[in-house]
Every structure is written in structure tokens, then in C-alpha cells.
Design a binder for these strands. Structure first.
Lengths: 105, 105
DNA sequence: CAGTATCCCCAGAGATACTG
DNA sequence: CAGTATCTCTGGGGATACTG
């Protein structure tokens, strides 16, 4: 968390969920559990490195959980936690806004 | 706009309104018209340079308007446009989320 | 007051290669 | 398959000074 002396709620949300990818990742995982490479395919523009880093952040913040299956080859599934699920209204609103934005002009 | 080949709505919103400051600036202006230095005081962590750049972006996207009073010294007022006003539900949801985030642990 | 204009820097992110 | 490990580089953004 960089700057949040102001204690502003909007700033708090941006500090935790800002950036190009976090909301997008959650918007997929909130619909269904997904594997690592499945997410890569869903987000064609993110690098493997960034996806890993963003997933770790989201996990540390408690929004998603990571389940490892000790198979060969390894299988890892990501899904939203209860806290992640609480972001659904926000995600929905962001989606609505995006649809509207694309419809302008 | 960097990457939006996917056409995803969430990505669209992030491309247009992402970044640390845009949502925050709109959240202030949606409540009331403000002058430049008034905004600076409201956002203690933004540099003058960034505030100018972000305001120009938001103006170009049609979310805010800029009114110049030819007084001495100059007076410039920023306020949301009709399109900016349409972001209110999103801003409200971001605020709610921020309040919740701060209440966790 | 409300900005521009410069200079400068580093952290965020890409590319590539390797591995349990 | 699902990641690390490096190495590299760019441009976003800070600091400072100046101005209509």
C-alpha cells in the first residue's frame, strides 16, 4: 500500500485492486474456478510473470485461493474466496460501465 | 488505449478509468465543482503535473468540463459532465468496497 | 492561480530460459 | 503444467523552476 494517509475509501480500493489486471482476473474467477493456463488464455495480453505476481497478490489479500493437485503434471486451480465473492457488485458495476463506455460515440 | 483486442468490458473500464487517480478525482468532482488548487488540497499525494495530466485525460474522455473565468488571478473550475455523472453508481460501489476493505482485519 | 517546461530516475513489466 | 530466475528496458511519474 503506497499512500493512504488520507484514509479515503476510493483510494483504498484503488490501492488494493487498482492496476490493469486485478479486477479483470477476479471478473473471470468470480464466474468459475480456473487453472493457470486457462487464465493465460483468457487474458491474452498478460505475461506469465505478471499473471503469477498478480495471482499471488490477490491470494495474499484473501480474495482468491489456490488449490494444488499433486498429480503429474501438476494441476493448480484458482477460485474466489468468500471475501472475493463480496467483490461481485463492484465487478458487475465495472462491467456495466465498460459496456456503456464502448457504446459511446 | 493500450490493449483491448479482447473487447472485454472490464478491460475497457480499466483502460479508460484505471490508474491511481482518475476514479479518485471523479469521486470529488461528482460531489461538487472544484478549483484546481482545491483539488490539489483534496489529493495531497498527487503532483501538480499529474493532476494536470489526469484532468486533461478526463476532459478529453468527456467526463469533466473545465470553465475558465477571465479574472485576475485566473480562476478555473472543474465539474462533471452528463457522462461523468453517469459514473456515479460505479463510484459509489468503489466507495462501499473501500469502506469494507478498511474494515477487514 | 493555474498551469508549462525540463530533467531525471527507478520500479513495473516484457522476453527468455530453465525446472520440480 | 505451473511456475522461477535473470536480465533488460521503457515510460510513468517525481522534483524543481518558470510564466500568462
Amino acid at each position: 500500500m503506497k499512500n493512504n494517509i488520507s484514509g479515503c475509501s476510493v483510494e483504498e480500493t484503488m490501492n488494493v485492486l487498482g492496476g490493469r489486471w486485478k479486477m479483470l482476473i477476479i471478473s473471470f474467477l468470480i464466474e468459475k474456478t480456473m487453472r493457470f493456463n486457462e487464465l493465460r488464455r483468457a487474458l491474452p495480453h498478460i505475461s506469465q510473470r505478471m499473471l503469477t505476481l498478480e495471482l499471488r497478490d490477490l491470494e495474499n489479500e484473501g480474495f482468491i485461493s489456490r488449490k494444488i493437485y499433486a498429480e503429474v503434471p501438476v494441476k493448480v486451480e484458482y477460485s474466489v474466496t468468500n471475501d472475493g465473492e463480496k467483490l461481485r457488485p463492484l465487478i458487475e458495476e465495472i462491467k456495466k460501465t465498460g459496456i456503456w463506455l464502448k457504446s459511446r460515440t
